[in-house]
């Protein structure tokens, strides 16, 4: 851990938010509950979108699937805010934890994947009707999206398992 990392974590630890969550018995569990609801919203809407893009579900036009995306964004926003709360409450546990770092990189990768799909394919596939097949590029992107979000949930749930370790194995 560098001095800069240490300073940033100390600053986070000392914020009003971090102190309030540590001093309260109910805030942390409540944020956890919000985090679980947020990840369910994200997963549910992404399943509807990605299973259609993959062609596993074909009996609805793609634009109807994409119409659920605001729920994924809402879930992601809930989890960003609740997640910032967790880290502020105990930054010295989270930042050195390898599962936490990998989780953050995987979220960036999932975001990049979503951005690439949106820029290159979104407009094209939004016109696809019932039964219409997407191209391989879109299918790979949809499969990657589902795989990454499941992996991200697993990494999050594995945080306590890797607490205090600097490496994975």
């Amino acid at each position: 851990m560098t001095q800069t990392e240490n300073d940033i974590m100390q600053w986070l630890y000392d914020t009003v938010l971090g102190q309030a969550i540590r001093d309260s018995t109910w805030m942390f569990p409540s944020l956890e509950t919000v985090h679980f609801i947020g990840l369910s919203l994200l997963m549910g809407s992404m399943l509807i979108v990605d299973l259609r893009l993959l062609g596993i579900m074909r009996d609805y036009p793609i634009r109807h699937a994409l119409a659920f995306l605001p729920w994924a964004i809402f879930g992601f926003v809930l989890n960003t805010f609740s997640g910032i709360g967790f880290v502020a409450a105990d930054p010295f546990m989270y930042w050195p934890n390898p599962a936490f770092r990998l989780k953050m990189y995987m979220i960036l990768l999932a975001g990049l994947n979503a951005a690439v799909f949106t820029i290159l394919e979104h407009r094209k596939v939004a016109g696809f009707g019932v039964g219409e097949e997407t191209n391989t590029f879109t299918k790979v992107s949809a499969g990657l999206s589902l795989g990454l979000w499941i992996f991200i949930i697993i990494l999050g749930r594995s945080l306590p398992t890797f607490e205090g370790s600097m490496t994975f194995f």
Binding site: F36, I37, G44, G156
Partner: peptide
């Protein structure tokens, strides 16, 4: 259990 929860609750909520 966490992944299953996300799937069942997520799809049911949608």
């Amino acid at each position: 259990h966490a992944v299953g929860m996300a799937i069942v609750v997520g799809v049911v909520l949608m």
